[in-house]
Nucleic acid binder design. Structure first.
Lengths: 219, 219
DNA sequence: GGCGGTCTCTACCCTGCGGTAGAGGCTCCG
DNA sequence: CGGAGCCTCTACCGCAGGGTAGAGACCGCC
């Protein structure tokens, strides 16, 4: 198995959990998407445990590349954030599973074995939302190119302003356009990301690292 | 001058900037509110450069204590977040000035000298908002006990749900009350914090550390 | 040239949110 | 006991926000 996470401690933690199992072995670790792709090609692991948020190449892009070959490794995406946009994107990118980081260690191990066997697995909460989505006769997952990558420059700009707490009228003033135009961008952006409102967009901005709390991380 | 910030690097940075000035001297550093109060009493600096967000006793409480004595030091509050609630609180706590961390070094030095001389100073953006507020015939600053401290337990709970991206109806379902009740709490909470809408509340939740991004801080 | 994507704007609709006011029941505390 | 604070609910209002549709202008690319 290959562990991919930009935080060394997290990586080590997962590796320790996995290595304690007799039937599972960590064959490598990577701190970013590019190294992950390279290592996956070199070590040919059965499974890659992939974090989404990483500097440089993100986990979704790496997943796309790793799962491109017909007989490539299976990828289990592990994230701390469960917005729909991520789930859809991960599955579209070729992931075999999607787990949240608050999962129990046993769940993680089970998921790894399930994915290794070729089956798919999703976190319970994620599964329920997907079911709800389809039950409501919702159209197939919104097309997203990559967490935030699918947005146009203007849309990303608007997203930043949203996440700064600005109202549409204020964003319009800041950009020198009409509020109608801002609404168009907001709508496009929410649709692309699979979000409901600007609050979720704000959360995504923080959770995705687009915006980082400026205060101290201590406390 | 006394530098108070929980991040050692930030502290060192400010100290370096200040010490390079012939007319300014750093007489001490503190990493939390309690040490700041103690040091302020011991060193009797002219000015205290105070960060708001700190583990343990926060900067506002420390400011309150430090400025309590008639001839106590002047306090220049430096924050990375400019929500109205902080500004009002800081001024009510006895601060002589309020600067944002994205200020230029020269602005910081100027502010320090101005505050040391007994005058008050505010960041331009902050000043404009205060003027706007008063221009609109707005009542005196909302009474806030301390960033998030003034909220009732229920209100904090609602704030957490807001910052999780839930709509009022969903919060109501989660708490087992009517949406009307949730709206009451939301309204009370926004008013107490001096915020306009739930997006700003969400931002505050992140910036205040109430919620911490679950993703990696790298990137 | 034609096509696709982006940015811009307009118009309309409806819902959820935010603001205000009042009111009843509860607990804690002086 | 009486008051204060909190939680709860109701009702109403206005508006910003979100959904949908269409349309013109610009640019880069085939």
């Amino acid at each position: 198995m290959l562990v991919v996470d930009d935080q060394a401690v997290v990586r080590a933690g997962f590796a320790a959990i996995v290595d304690a199992e007799p039937d599972l072995t960590v064959v490598g670790e990577a701190g970013d998407g590019a190294s992950a792709v390279e290592l996956a090609g070199r070590e040919a692991p059965d499974v890659v445990l992939m974090d989404i948020r990483m500097p440089g190449m993100d986990g979704l892009t790496a997943t796309r590349l790793i799962t491109a070959p017909e007989s490539g490794p299976r990828v289990l995406v592990l994230t701390t954030f469960d917005l729909d946009a991520y789930v859809y994107e991960a599955l579209r990118a070729g992931a075999s599973g999607f787990l949240l980081k608050d999962a129990q260690p046993e769940e993680l191990l089970t998921a790894l074995r399930v994915v290794a066997s070729g089956d798919g697995i999703l976190a319970p909460a994620v599964t329920r939302r997907l079911i709800d989505t389809f039950a409501q006769g919702a159209p197939p997952p919104p097309v997203v190119t990559g967490a935030l990558g699918g947005l146009t420059p203007r849309e990303r700009e608007v997203l930043l302003h949203i996440a700064s707490g600005l109202a549409n009228a204020e964003i319009a003033a800041a950009l020198g356009v009409t509020t109608g135009t801002v609404k168009t961008h907001v709508n496009a952006l929410l649709t692309k990301l699979g979000l409901r409102d600007r609050v979720q967009a704000t959360i995504l901005a923080y959770e995705s690292g687009l915006i980082r709390p400026r205060g101290a991380p201590a406390g």
